[in-house]
Every structure is written in C-alpha cells, then in structure tokens.
Design a protein around this nucleic acid. Structure first.
Lengths: 192, 192
DNA sequence: CCAATTGTTGACCGATCGGTCAGTCAAATC
DNA sequence: GATTTGACTGACCGATCGGTCAACAATTGG
C-alpha cells in the first residue's frame, strides 16, 4: 500500500524540523518536500504549531514503545542498564533525526516533552531504585541522574558532531568505541 | 563608564538568541530589546549571520578562559576532574543562557563551534591521558568520552528543565544534589 | 574652522512568512 | 440521481522578514 499524503507530510516535516528547527522551516518548504500544496497541509493540520505537536507525538511514541519493551525484557538490573544504553544508542543511530528533533523541543521550552517522557523516566527510575534496594547498585545516588546521564550523552553524541570532527585521532569518531567506553565508565560508576 | 550601544546589542542578542534560537529572533526584536534602531545594528554588524558569529565568539571566549585557567590551577588529576565539573556547573548556573546558545549552534550544524572548543577539549584530553599513563585513572577509555560526558550532562541539565519539572520527589530539582551524584558516578567510573 | 569619519535615524524595498478562502473533484451516503 | 463529505488546489492577504539608502548629528583630527 502507498503511503498517504498526510503521513508523507508528517515524515517530511520531521526530517525538516529535525534538520533546521521549527522556525527555520516554512510550510512552503514542507509542501515542496512532500510534493503537496501548502493548502493541503493547512487542510490536515490546524496550523504550524499543531503540525509540530503531531509530529512530536507520533515519533516520540515510536521511541517510547521501543524503550518500554526493553525495560520488561531483562531482569538483571546491571545488564538492563548496559542493554538499555546500547539499544538506545542503536535506536538513535538508526533514527538520527529524532534526538535533534527533541533537542529543539527542549530548547524551545516545550512543556509537553516532559509530560511525554515522564512515564519512561518514571519506570527507569523505579527499576534502578529497586536494584539499589537489593544491593545491586550503589545506594547513594538519585536514579534520575543515571537515566538522564545516559540519554543525554547518547543524544548529544549524534547532535554535536562538530565536537568530534576536529580531532586527528579517529577513535571518538567510531561510534562503537565511544559507546563501549561510555558504558563501562557508567557501569563501574554505579556499582556498589 | 556606560555600556556602549554596540556592546548592548551584543548582550541583548545573546539573551534573545539563547532563548529563542537564531531563526526565531528578528533584528527588529533585538533592536527593540537593546533600545536602538534596526539600522544601527546593520551599521555595526554586516548582517544577521555576522551578528550571530560575533556573539558566539565573544561569549565562548568568556567561558573558555574560565575553564583553561582551571586546567592549570590543579595538579591532582582526579581532583581536577572533580573541580572542573563543579566549576563548570557553577559557571553554567551563573550563565544559564550560554549552554542554550551553544546548543542552538550545535543543532544548526555550526562548523565553527567545533573549532572554537577544540583547544579546550585537546587540553582536557591531554591531562586525562597523562593521568591514565601515571596509573591514576583507568587506562581503557578514550579521554574525549570523559570530557564530552561531563560537558554534555551539565549543559543539558540546564537546558532540559522540562524533564525535571514533572517529578513529585524534589531531589533532582536541587542542583547541588544532582551535580554531587553525577560527579561521584563519574569519578568512581574512571578510577583504576 | 573645516573636513572627514563615525554613530544614528526613519523611510522604504522585494521576498517570504503563516494563513484564508472559494471552489473543484471524486467517493460515499441517502 | 441528488446531496453530503473530505481531499485537494491556486489565487490571494496582511504582516513581517532581512536589508538598503540617503540624510543628519556628533565627534575627531588637521
């Protein structure tokens, strides 16, 4: 089956918003990219703001489902952290526009983004708290710090490429080496 | 002495750019905020792009000088890491617009931002490398991962406030608790 | 004192912005 | 077969965008 024009608009809007941010992207650009008329976009979406909101919810759901499944599929907490980091890293590697998109949302003080990932952070936090109580992780740190730490670093790895381009040693440009080093620092950092 | 109109334009431009991003901010807005005419801005700065570049270099220098001094003021590497994190955290706390500003620069694929902080990353990397060779830190991670880790997390802490607002437990909203937990995880993570 | 330079302004420009609107067309409903 | 509905279009709107320009005021140097 062919992709509908509406879905096509969403896809192209995500790509453009993630690449250039909300304000840099005009409805005309999206229309051109999606090969529809500007009017059609206003037919399907109330206005530019509403289009942005819709794009956000659709693609956040894609990511959240992925992560939530992972939470339930691994019982060893240390291994869960390790796997979560690696899985999330791979997810972002395959969807490099997504962290850019959410970074724009954060910068623009989007109130909704906190609401969207709240259940995810909550669940991650709970799992870590349990592990702490069972003596599998150090007790004296707030779980949120850990969750925040790994999401942030991985997102930023794919966003701030300009930080890496100017190094002659090629190591940090190799994604696998990077994530391995980062995982080991974190795992060792939380062990009792 | 009074602040010159040109400097005033720079200050207001930083604040506006950091708050709303490049595209969202119009020259008229800056003019209004700085209480000068739009034409005066074009008199002092070639165009909008050039104003953006100037703002960036001025305020990056402010941050870089701060950090570079710290690098030379502490000889114990582990303590240097600890101090760097805390100092950088405090710097950002006092200049919360700065990380927002650079985040926008990263997102907009600003080639120059890599060039700007390259000496800083280089120096930090060297110091860590030396500490590794002296057996003061674990050897099997790339220094850049560590530098990147702490800069990223601290920046993001102040940017992504929306992540924190939706929690009932107030801990992670307390900046000091947050940075303490984060420092301990990192320090423990890199020790031999 | 005059000339050159620098700071500063308001009027103005073409382009593009988000958004509207009247209307076409095809498919579903009655 | 008439009517309603939803997808879709092109012409158009007022507002605002970045940027220009001629002119004036203030300062500076000879």
């Amino acid at each position: 089956m062919e992709i509908s024009k509406k879905d096509n608009i969403l896809n192209e809007a995500l790509a453009l918003f993630a690449t250039h941010g909300f304000a840099h992207v005009s409805i005309s650009m999206i229309a051109k990219q999606a090969k529809v008329t500007k009017s059609l976009i206003f037919h399907h979406f109330e206005n530019k703001e509403h289009l942005w909101e819709t794009v956000k919810e659709v693609f956040f759901k894609k990511y959240a489902d992925n992560q939530m499944n992972l939470f339930e599929s691994e019982s060893d907490p240390i291994e869960l952290i390790r796997k979560s980091m690696r899985y999330y890293f791979d997810f972002v590697r395959n969807n490099p526009m997504v962290p850019r998109f959410f970074a724009y949302a954060h910068l623009e003080n989007d109130e909704n983004c906190g609401r969207l990932d709240q259940p995810l952070m909550q669940r991650g936090g709970e799992l870590i708290r349990q592990a702490q109580e069972h003596g599998l992780m150090r007790k004296n740190f707030n779980p949120v710090v850990l969750v925040m730490n790994f999401i942030t670093v991985i997102n930023q790895y794919f966003i701030a490429e300009c930080h890496f381009k100017h190094w002659d040693n090629g190591l940090y440009q190799d994604p696998d080496t990077f994530i391995n080093d980062f995982i080991e620092i974190t795992i060792q950092g939380i062990q009792p």
